[in-house]
Amino acid sequence: MKFGVIVFPGSNCDHDAFYAASHNLGQPTEYIWHDSRSLGDVDAVILPGGFAYGDYLRCGAIARFSPVMQAVQRFAAEGGLVLGICNGFQILVEAGLLPGALIRNRGLKFICRELRLRVATTHSPFTGALHEGQVLRLPIAHGEGCYFAEPRTLDELEAEDRVAFRYLDNPNGSLRDIAGILSRERNVMGMMPHPERASDPLMGSADGLGVFQSMLAAVEAARPVAGVRP
């Protein structure tokens, strides 16, 4: 399986996502520059954390206009796996690939902290290798990670089993403790916690590797059929 990691100017978790996919998971991985019009032959694409374009306006608001996002939109529409982590989640929301918004943390401060997440669904290519209700230890590092959406959207997310992760100790005021969500077709996921930072026991937790292992399993299972249909 081949991963692509998108590099926006200001991405700063691109190397970490690359390392988790290539080194911790052991899969071929390549960087995709933000002005690329195509994603090449990757099986899954990761939008990494960071401060794309400086995020001086609103997180992800500029990045969504990046040329590569058109390719990501097409890739997602064709069923390709798209994982947005932290700033990547913010960009996916701005791009309309996921519903809702990520606003300032309730405490108005940036928070870097290891915390517990509950796996809310295993019915997705990002969580298939995890167990329903499993508690993961993953770090967060964000200033604007409070998940917000109108009640109808939240109800819909829950009714369609599209909440992927919930915080056990909600750090940022996210509505309904939501830490990660899936698209309707379940092939796009955004999450504020950083699985790539918890993919090696030396970093204190390897619980995040399960997300990448799930993606690998989903892609392998879908072969030799072209594209991925969960």
Partner: peptide, 13 residues
Amino acid sequence: WEQYDYQVRTNTI
């Protein structure tokens, strides 16, 4: 220190 990202680059043992 919680206001600082102390983990980015995944080298922080």
